[in-house]
Write a protein that binds this DNA or RNA. Structure first.
Lengths: 252, 252
DNA sequence: GGAAATGCACTTGTATACAGATTTGCAAGC
DNA sequence: GCTTGCAAATCTGTATACAAGTGCATTTCC
């Protein structure tokens, strides 16, 4: 599949949204972007519409596009949806996983364990944090892969990405959220995350769909609460109103 | 919100896909469509991309767009996702519903009951069928509304629409799927659907989230099996091979 | 001085022209 | 007969010009 200009524009803009270079609310004007990216307005327009479908950008007719701002209501809704999907997918993973899937999940888990221990021991975190986040993502992706449902996997990954808008600002080069709270708090949080992951892995490994689902739901609930706390404290326009005037008619 | 030309093109094409006028696999060429709709290629292109995001159209770079064809694998995945979302949303509806929500659900349910009885009694169905389908949709929408999660509601309705591609062909004017099977079979099926809906409503009304969820999951499971049977029999490029009876029994 | 009106700058939405890719039809070669 | 190569036809992707809507600032009027 050949890469066309609209894909170039899409990748360019998306990267900058996820890295935090374009913060929530930032205006995305087609002419400006087309100049920077080096393509015409048409593919830029297309890229913006695709990003809107991803949930990273909001577009209002004749008023232009901007990086999505999420309010608390929408964040809760998104998390609730993620809870439903990822919980179900985890149950499927417990039933459908192959041995290779299981190995991949455990690799990610072991990687996280090592990094977490080193992070707790260390004073300076930054180089290890990127790796930890990468392994965390790897863990979740491995489970979604084991569930053997590409559609759900895609949708869940999409939600993960949109979630990152809330957890910003992030390290511009790595895309990893900057640390929050005191070190003991962060250490405690990391231990809890690891314990959750252990529980999820064990349940999947022994094929216990119900326990796996519950463990994943608890884990996501933790993440939700963390997100809500961040939104409450950082504010910075995140909690302001947000109108999605998308009225889809659902009948013929 | 002003209606722009790309919206006109979107509505035009979408309507024809859902009505079956553009069947699965039908090529959607920008120039031809722009001529018929009376706008230029640019808004048509945009509309096609939006329909792709909806899951109704597939686009391959430089090869053009066509109405989405669904294979069995994708259909199962979609249904499984719907199961997860709609089950969860039903549980939420049991917890979050207002009295007005409950009334709206019961109105739809009562409407369906009356229509079902008249349909079973009648010989000629066509005028009543449209109404029955409308009330069925109304029932499901009312529950999603009661769940108080607009994001999930939107996603579920999207999946409902994509589902309709499988249940085609439909009555061109009303968009209602044409009847299948013998009359006793259809009557039996309608009674079962109604009983399912009753069960779902009762559980929601008494705030029993677990029972509501389970009832909705069973109901959707029924729909899934019906869809798989239709796919197996209608074929028409939808499936590559004949299904075994085992495959017809859907179990995630 | 403040509110309404008006004009301007800017941006989006749309039409259209053009370049490149893909398919199709046909003829030549094995 | 079937494949292979080539060229025309066709369609997509992109650039660009133009029209129309929106917000802002200045002006005008009370």
């Amino acid at each position: 599949m050949k890469k066309v200009n609209s894909d170039v524009a899409y990748d360019y803009i998306r990267k900058r949204i996820l890295s935090g270079e374009y913060p929530p609310g930032h205006a995305l004007m087609t002419e400006e972007l087309s100049g920077v990216i080096g393509v015409s307005r048409t593919p830029v327009r297309e890229a913006l519409h695709k990003l809107k479908a991803d949930g990273l950008v909001s577009i209002r007719a004749r008023l232009g596009a901007s990086v999505k701002k999420m309010d608390v209501k929408e964040f809760r809704e998104m998390c609730d949806m993620r809870l439903a999907l990822e919980g179900h997918a985890t149950a499927l993973a417990a039933l459908n996983h192959s041995q290779a899937d299981l190995r991949e999940i455990r690799f990610a888990l072991d990687g996280m364990r090592g990094l977490t221990e080193r992070l707790i021991a260390a004073e300076e975190e930054s180089p290890l944090l990127d790796e930890l986040v990468r392994e965390d993502v790897r863990f979740h992706i491995a489970i979604m892969t084991a569930a053997k449902n590409d559609l759900m996997k895609g949708e869940i990954l999409r939600l993960h990405l949109v979630n990152r808008i809330v957890f910003g600002p992030v390290n511009p080069t790595s895309g990893v959220p900057v640390s929050r709270g005191t070190k003991p708090e962060r250490d405690e949080n990391r231990r809890r995350v690891l314990a959750s992951h252990d529980e999820i892995y064990d349940a999947i490994a022994r094929g216990d769909a119900i326990a796996a689902k519950r463990a994943m739901e608890d884990h996501i609930q933790d993440i939700i609460e963390k997100g809500l706390r961040i939104m409450a404290h950082s504010g910075a326009g995140l909690i302001t109103r947000e109108l999605t005037d998308e009225e889809l008619v659902y009948n013929g």
